[in-house]
Simulated scan of single mutants.
Amino acid sequence: MGSTLTDILDAAAHGRFPSPDGGTTVVPQPSCRDAGVIAFTGHSVVFTDEDPQWVRRTLASVDCDPLAATMNPRFLGALLDHTRRSMDTIDLLTVASSLDGPPPLPLTELADAGHPRELRARRRRDDIRVWAAEGGVVVLGRGVAGRWEAATEVDDGCRHRGLGRALATAARHLVPDGDPVWAQQAAGNARSVRAFQAAGFRPVGAEALLLAT
Rank of each mutant, 00 (worst) to 15 (best):
A166Q: 12
D112H: 10
R165Y: 07
P102G: 05
A39P: 03
V95A: 06
A212W: 02
V46P: 14
D155N: 02
P66A: 14
L174Y: 01
G15T: 13
Q184W: 01
Q53P: 00
V139W: 07
A35Y: 01
L9D: 09
T213S: 09
D7I: 01
V26C: 10
T108R: 15
G114V: 10
G135P: 12
V204T: 11
D179E: 10
R147T: 14
V27G: 00
I38E: 03
E153P: 00
H82K: 13
R172A: 11
L9E: 13
H173K: 11
A190H: 14
S61T: 13
A166H: 07
R129K: 10
G77Q: 11
G141Y: 09
F47L: 13
L93S: 12
A133D: 09
V130C: 10
F75P: 06
P73W: 02
P52W: 06
G114H: 01
A111H: 11
P18W: 04
V204N: 01
A206H: 15
E118N: 06
V62C: 01
A212I: 00
L93W: 07
R142F: 06
R172M: 09
P104R: 01
V204H: 05
L174K: 05
H160V: 05
G200F: 04
G114L: 04
L93D: 12
G135S: 09
L209E: 09
G101S: 03
R124S: 15
A198I: 02
L105H: 08
D63M: 05
H115D: 13
A212S: 13
G143K: 06
A96P: 03
A198S: 14
I90Q: 09
L80G: 09
A166L: 15
F196K: 02
V154F: 02
T169R: 06
M71T: 13
D100P: 08
A60I: 09
Q197G: 07
S192R: 11
L5N: 08
T41R: 12
V27W: 04
G114S: 05
D127Q: 12
A68V: 00
D10E: 14
Q184Y: 02
R165V: 14
A150E: 09
E109A: 10
A78C: 04
D34F: 03
